[in-house]
């Protein structure tokens, strides 16, 4: 059931990418979809009543959560920020050239 809520979040993001006219809003939708996928990875690696995957000198810790999805997502978060920065740079360049963020108007002005 919790997976389902996570996929609802993904759907909201995809809907934003598909149906918005404002470029900034499309970028927001992409970021939301990215958050949902990251969350899905970590949810799959979660163990009920688990502990964080950090050893302590006091003794062995049983019942750790899966560290592998966390490592993959840690990389994906920083890459997501970099992709966002590149998209924002392109959007600002488009705004500098056409004076609007509206996709439909940019298409009209292009010719």
């Amino acid at each position: 059931m919790i997976y389902f809520l996570c996929l609802v979040l993904l759907c909201v993001g995809i809907y934003g990418v598909l149906r918005k006219r404002n470029i900034i809003r499309m970028i927001l939708g992409l970021i939301i979809a990215e958050h949902a996928i990251n969350l899905l990875f970590v949810l799959i690696g979660y163990r009920l009543n688990g502990r964080a995957p950090i050893l302590s000198p006091d003794g062995p810790i049983l019942q750790m959560v899966d560290p592998l999805p966390q490592a993959l997502v840690l990389t994906a978060i920083v890459i997501g920020l970099a992709t966002t920065a590149l998209l924002v740079a392109l959007a600002m360049r488009l705004h500098g050239k056409y004076g609007t963020y509206d996709v439909a108007r940019i298409r009209e002005l292009k010719g």
Binding site: A82, A85, V88, A89, M92, H95, G96, K97, G99
Partner: peptide, 15 residues
Amino acid sequence: LFSIFLALVLLRINR
């Protein structure tokens, strides 16, 4: 990240 931020801030848009 700091150079990305500088590039985004230092831009002067000449429309």
